[in-house]
Design a protein around this nucleic acid. Sequence first.
RNA 1: GGUCGGAUGGCCGAGUGGCUAGGCAGAGGUCUGCAAAACCUUCUACACCAGUUCGAAUCUGGUUCCGACCUCCA
Length: 497
Amino acid sequence: MEHLIKVYNNISRKKETFVPINSPFVGMYVCGPTVYNDVHLGNVRTFVSFDVIYRYLQYYGYKVRYVRNITDVGHLTEDENAEDKMLKQAKLMQVEPMEVAQLYTNNFHEVLYLFNCLPPNIEPIATGHILEQIEMTQAILAAGFAYEIDGSVYFDVEKFNKKVGYGKLSGRKIEDLIANTRDLDGQENKRNNLDFALWKKANPEHLMRWKSPWGEGFPGWHLECSVMSTKYLGANFDIHGGGMDLKFPHHECEIAQNQAATHYEGARYWLHTNMLTVNGQKMSKSLGNGFLPAELITGDHPVLERGYAPMVIRFFMLQTHYSSTLDFSNEALDAAEKAYFRLMNAWENLNKLSLTPNANLQDAAEMEEVNRLCEACHQSMNDDFNTAMTIANLFELSRKINAYNDGKLALESLDEPTFARLQATYNDFIQVVLGLKNEQKEQGGKLTDGLMDIILDIRKAARENKDWTTSDLIRDRLNTLNVVVKDAKEATTWSVN
RNA sequence: GGUCGGAUGGCCGAGUGGCUAGGCAGAGGUCUGCAAAACCUUCUACACCAGUUCGAAUCUGGUUCCGACCUCCA
């Protein structure tokens, strides 16, 4: 049995055994959002994926320091004015740029909380690390891999490529890049189109500006991640994550900066989550084809037939491996919703079961099967955090659990350690590792429960008298209120849909 | 054009050189006053063309189609 975690490392393009630099400590850095507007669902997917990775690494026994930044320095928009996104939004809203940042940082936190993502251990913000960014720029200048022109400092990609090598992560060759870069505004004073800004001189009207050895300006986009990962995790740490779309140029530039300043590439394992698509097209802020998490929850969007609970959406996302694209459709969400409630139902059933061990009834084959499935949950997570496979294993266990609950299989065929393992594994993987919560739970309330008891008692009496008209009337009327009544053998249960 | 990644049954989606993914939907059955739930059984697969192999959907080469990145994006 293999008990080591394997991860697909984008820098080697291979699945590798995960070996922390300083076990049991693990450092993980994930690129966070730019807080100039609402997070959309694609962002949520990435952070849910890394949330599960964070959760599993901890469950596995590692002491993880999870750092996820907030980018609150704006970067260039695609329009020809090359306007800073933070500033553009601030002007639009007629507020301070930092108010924009605060507003959408709050929104970001609320959304991730809704999706049951654990907060990172450190959430550094770019504007809180201007000094460090100036220092790293100086270090890169001192190493000879950057140059200053007119109050801006640029990374010298060509020189770096000759001496160290550029393009390892994305597999790009510098000659191809030179042939293909476009001319962008505000870049005319760079030596080479490929060069990227470490520090930009601020125009007189630019609101976000800081003093530096090169005059007033603001840091380049790629720099903050190099700086903050180095500051909180060291120059050489374990995992760096982010969306696939950050692979180039963002992460490539980060690696170059890291190497120029510290000689290390930064992280040893580079993990990228794939994109969310709508009708086969990437969901992105720029394309405007995304919906907001709130819209998906309420169903208030033209392409959505109805809303889905946050946990249903989280479950839906985890049914796919993080490295595959995930396409959104009402059909897929409906299927996921049914599956999710089945899982939750089995979970409830499991926690109602209690075993009185009986050595005479124990069945070695049955115990082996349960143990095998429990083991498989670990194995599938060890295999590059394969949540889809883990969920499949949990469904196999669900079938068992339901059979025990129904009496179709004797719970006594298990001995105590096997039953305890089943309970622990099932509870842990759903709750601790996958971070799912039971959405059904929050209904009822004392008064409702009491009223339902009365109603169902009356119905029970009717059924005992074979007064099917009355019993069916009660059930049908409750149904119109979305209350579903189920007559199981022992008792009648109800739930709100 | 360059770089990278895909193509799996009605749908969503894992995985693998020979052995059931899983979920949703469909069919049959058990249970039930009926219904629901649950359980059991079951039907649809691995883009195309070559090659390697005892054996390939899984490896190799080619073809077609699709997507991402190459400008900010998770």
